[in-house]
């Protein structure tokens, strides 16, 4: 693994998979989180606990579950996703979504009740109300997305299991680091680790800058 083009491919694939997983996780998680954060309903306590439990769901177990689902002899085998980036996206989305739901739920839930009353009194549609709540809880939501992304980009166990670390197809930075370490190439492994940290740092920097400028 000495070529630069391979390295670039690995880096880009890592961000692609993490990006898509975070995107899907956000599209599902933000509305659900906002809804759960504002509505009172039966069983809310149970659902909240369930979501928080998923925060600590072992990624490697998720990898195993997704593997069994997508296996040729499994229920979703017809998709032919196993050992492709699609399988990795499935696994990472499952891991990121509870985080995004939970953090959004908590942020929206802690919106000042005066704000909630105000939004309700405006008589807007439910969808518009959710959107306004999301706007009010903007920094909490940014946190939710960032943490969701972090869980994806650093994922290794599930990525390895459902992706297979196939060169040119499903090898990402984390699984490449595992490979290099296994072969005893510690310097290469550290180098990859440094790149992972540096590139992720840049992304978070962009996030923070965009968020910070909010207070004109």
């Amino acid at each position: 693994m000495a070529q630069w083009s391979q390295l670039i491919e690995i880096v880009l694939l890592s961000y692609y998979i993490a990006g898509v997983s975070t995107l899907i996780g956000s599209m599902i998680g933000l509305p659900i989180g906002a809804f759960l954060g504002t509505k009172r309903f039966k069983g809310k306590f149970a659902i909240k606990t369930l979501i928080f439990t998923f925060y600590g769901f072992p990624p490697v177990v998720m990898g195993l579950i997704v593997f069994l689902l997508l296996s040729s002899s499994g229920p979703m085998g017809f998709l032919d996703f196993l050992y492709t980036p699609w399988a990795m996206i499935v696994a990472e989305t499952f891991l990121a979504t509870p985080l995004i739901i939970g953090i959004t739920m908590t942020s929206v839930g802690s919106i000042d009740h005066n704000v909630k009353d105000l939004v309700r009194s405006l008589g807007v549609s439910k969808a518009r109300a959710l959107f306004l709540y999301l706007k009010e809880a903007r920094s909490g939501i940014a946190t939710a997305v960032m943490i969701g992304f972090g869980s994806c980009i650093s994922e290794v166990g599930a990525a390895m299991m459902v992706g297979g670390n196939i060169e040119g197809h499903t090898r990402v930075m984390t699984t490449a680091i595992v490979l290099e370490t296994r072969m005893g190439n510690f310097q290469t492994a550290m180098f990859l680790g440094a790149i992972l940290l540096a590139t992720t740092c840049i992304i978070y920097l962009a996030f923070v800058l965009l968020e910070g400028k909010r207070d004109d």
Partner: peptide, 18 residues
Amino acid sequence: KVTAVGSGQAIELGKNGN
């Protein structure tokens, strides 16, 4: 496409058509 796993896992993959 090459996936490197233990022999045991490789054989399981074969058994399940993966």
